[in-house]
């Protein structure tokens, strides 16, 4: 038996405890997101495990006390994208539309599903059709799905999402807009099929404008 621990062992235990304190509490959040990314419980478990062990391996380089949750999500997102691209080989073209200007990407939405009213029972809709909501979300293309999950499930700010996904804030905003629209369109048609809401047509689609545009506008009064 070693009477005293050596420096290396002490350092490792210190690291373990810091990791338990800062990183491990975010494991549930990673898992809830991984489930919708991978669409499968087993793959989600593997993804979370791989991300957590990678995070521990690099934890010495991570600056403690900074945004640990965003750091963990960046690791998990990178891991997922890498695995995903590897698995897909070249069967599917990346949906990355960054190079196109915003206008070109605007889909012709006949109406704005965001404003579709599920009546007073919209909360009930989510409760009743939780599985459908998950399924619909999983059908949203992965690049859009990631930002929706980061913004709506994890409450990350646009700036954090931009860092996690490694794209400009403008891209985050347009992907978020598109991702939510796709999801809402799916849910709206499902709700209609179920007779939950009446089909109606309206067009009030509004593309998001950059934060700076608002700030500039505001400055000018």
């Amino acid at each position: 038996m070693k009477a005293q621990m050596n420096m290396e062992e002490i350092a490792r235990l210190e690291l373990e405890r810091a990791f338990l304190r800062e990183a491990v509490p975010h494991m549930d959040a990673l898992y809830a997101t991984a489930l919708r990314l991978t669409k499968n419980k087993g793959n989600a478990e593997d993804l979370v495990q791989e991300a957590m062990l990678k995070a521990f391996r690099y934890f010495g380089k991570y600056q403690q006390g900074t945004n640990c949750k965003a750091w963990l999500f960046k690791i998990m997102t990178n891991t997922f994208i890498n695995n995903y691209r590897k698995a897909k080989k070249r069967k599917e073209v990346s949906i990355d539309e960054d190079s196109k200007p915003l206008e070109e990407r605007a889909v012709a939405v006949e109406r704005d599903p965001m404003q579709e009213k599920f009546g007073d029972q919209d909360t009930m809709f989510f409760k009743l059709f939780g599985d459908e909501v998950k399924k619909a979300l999983e059908e949203v293309p992965v690049d859009f799905r990631i930002v929706v999950l980061l913004a709506d499930l994890q409450d990350f700010a646009y700036k954090e999402i931009a860092e996690i996904v490694d794209v400009p804030i403008g891209t985050v905003m347009s992907r978020l807009y598109r991702g939510r629209k796709i999801l809402q369109t799916k849910l709206t048609s499902y709700a209609e099929e179920q007779g939950y809401i009446d089909p109606k047509v309206e067009d009030s689609s509004n593309q998001p404008t950059s934060l700076d545009a608002y700030r500039t506008r505001r400055m000018q009064g």
Binding site: E16, F19, L20, V24, M27, D28, L30, Y31, A32, L35, R36, E45, V48, Q49, M52, L53, F56, M114, Q115, K117, D122, T123, F125, F126, K127, G130, V133, K134, L137, L149, D152, L153, D155, Q184
Partner: peptide, 30 residues
Amino acid sequence: NQTNWKRNLKECLSEESVPTDLRASILSQI
């Protein structure tokens, strides 16, 4: 509407937490 939507979606997706055996496996490897 949009705020409710966001809240509902979040509630719907955040029910699940890490299975106990996965948590134990990760912690024991760390």
